[in-house]
Amino acid sequence: MIDPAKTESFERFGRRWMELVDKHGGTHHGYFLPAEGASDKALALFSFPSLAAYEEYRSLFGKDAEFIDADRIRDESGCVLRYERTFMRPLLPGSPRPAPPA
């Protein structure tokens, strides 16, 4: 959840995280911000080629200066009220069908 009164700060925070995900082996697919309806929900989608690559990226949290600076935007502005993390797998056009269970 984001503070709707601090959307500009959230956008600055989000742009910085998009750069960091891409710089550290992932692909950031963007943030989706409120336009109509509930005005406090934002969604970020990003992917990594493997769990190991994601874990390497996560190991930089709180240690790497760029990550600390990005978090400072969030912390000082108060633009993020709460966040939830869900791990998903993509089903994309042209994806091979999984093998049937044995």
Rank of each mutant, 00 (worst) to 15 (best):
A35C: 02
Y83W: 00
E56I: 02
G94N: 02
S59T: 01
R85D: 05
R58T: 10
S39M: 13
E56F: 04
P90F: 11
A42I: 07
R15Y: 12
K23M: 09
E55N: 12
P100D: 10
S59G: 09
R82C: 03
K41C: 09
R85E: 06
R85V: 14
F13Q: 06
S39A: 12
M18G: 15
R82E: 07
A44S: 14
G14T: 01
F87V: 11
P90D: 08
P98D: 00
K41R: 15
S47Y: 04
A70N: 09
T27A: 07
G78F: 01
H28E: 05
T27G: 04
H24C: 00
E66C: 09
P101V: 15
R12M: 06
P4W: 05
S47C: 07
L33Y: 10
E55L: 10
L92M: 10
L45E: 10
R97P: 00
K23L: 13
G62I: 13
V21H: 03
M18N: 13
L81Q: 06
S59Y: 02
Y57K: 03
F46I: 03
D69Y: 06
P100R: 14
H29I: 00
G30M: 09
A53D: 11
F46V: 04
R72H: 13
A65I: 12
S50H: 10
P100E: 09
A52K: 15
A38C: 01
P96S: 13
E76C: 01
P49A: 02
F67Q: 13
F13M: 02
R74Y: 04
T7Q: 14
L81G: 02
R85C: 09
S39P: 10
R97E: 07
L60N: 05
R12D: 13
P4L: 05
A65K: 11
A65V: 11
F10E: 03
D69K: 14
S39R: 09
S47A: 12
G25L: 05
F46A: 03
H29D: 06
A102N: 07
L33G: 04
D71R: 08
S77D: 09
D3G: 06
I2P: 04
G25Q: 08
L20P: 11
H24Q: 03
L43I: 11
F46K: 06
P101N: 12
V80M: 03
H24K: 10
P90C: 04
G94Q: 01
D75G: 10
A70S: 08
S95N: 11
A5V: 12
R89H: 02
K23R: 15
